[in-house]
């Protein structure tokens, strides 16, 4: 009889349950308070970065904080420092933030390229524009309704057009060369001296 089982089991369980309930609830409340405090701390750091005060940001920081540092670096066109942060954002499930970070990286590259073009250094500007277009394209893949990325991709595309013959198979992706492995020791002496 389930009703009988309940009547027997309930008085025995009741003291333990009454003890566990406030303990669990207080533990949950404490965890919520810690999360709130962390969010507030991250927001203060984001505000600092937006105000132009640099803060070191670890790659395991919350995604909005990573993005704030990426935008700070983009403002200074420091593309090399941005790359590990964008790569860290890739592992988070935040497509909108990743799109914004890639867009900022594309902008930083394109600004450097435009600066080089201004100084008539066309050769180093080319690869930068191609890389910037890749970032815009990836930003749009993550967020198809990202209008600023569409606009800037159009600007970059007018500087260097796509050539159908060149990358018909690979699209905009650059394939990495498989690692070349030495099958023989170079320079090993052979035959008679």
């Amino acid at each position: 009889m389930p009703a009988d089982t309940f009547h027997i089991a309930w008085p025995r369980l009741r003291p333990g349950l009454l003890l566990a309930l406030p303990v669990l609830l207080l533990a949950g409340a404490l965890a919520g308070a810690v999360l709130t405090w962390r969010a507030a701390a991250a927001n203060r750091e984001i505000a600092d970065l937006e105000a132009g005060r640099d803060r070191p940001v670890a790659t395991d920081a919350p995604a909005p904080l990573l993005l704030a540092r990426v935008l700070y670096l983009a403002h200074r066109d420091a593309t090399e420092e941005m790359e590990p942060l964008v790569a860290a954002l890739e592992t988070r499930a935040a497509p909108a933030l990743l799109a914004r970070a890639r867009y900022a990286l594309g902008n930083a590259r394109l600004r450097r390229a435009l600066d080089l073009i201004e100084r008539s250094q066309l050769d180093p500007a080319g690869p930068l524009i191609v890389l910037a277009r890749q970032e815009y394209r990836r930003a749009l893949q993550a967020r198809p309704d990202f209008w600023d990325a569409k606009f800037n991709l159009d600007v970059a595309s007018r500087l260097i057009r796509d050539f159908p013959e060149v990358d018909r198979q690979v699209g905009d992706e650059l394939k990495a060369e498989p690692k070349k492995i030495w099958t023989d020791i170079p320079g090993q002496p052979r035959g008679a001296p």
């Binding site: 949950g28 409340a29 404490l30 965890a31 919520g32 308070a33 999360l35 709130t36 969010a39 507030a40 991250a42 927001n43 984001i46 937006e50 919350p62 909005p64 904080l65 993005l67 704030a68 935008l71 983009a74 403002h75 933030l97 914004r100 867009y103 900022a104 902008n107 394109l110 600004r111 600023d148 606009f151 800037n152 600007v155």
Partner: peptide, 21 residues
């Protein structure tokens, strides 16, 4: 000619605060 970099969102402390309360 480029559109600006824009700003990212902040973290929302409201859900964990509501849960804690």
């Amino acid at each position: 000619y480029l559109r600006p970099d824009g700003q990212g969102p902040r973290l929302d402390p409201a859900p964990p605060r509501t849960a804690a309360l």
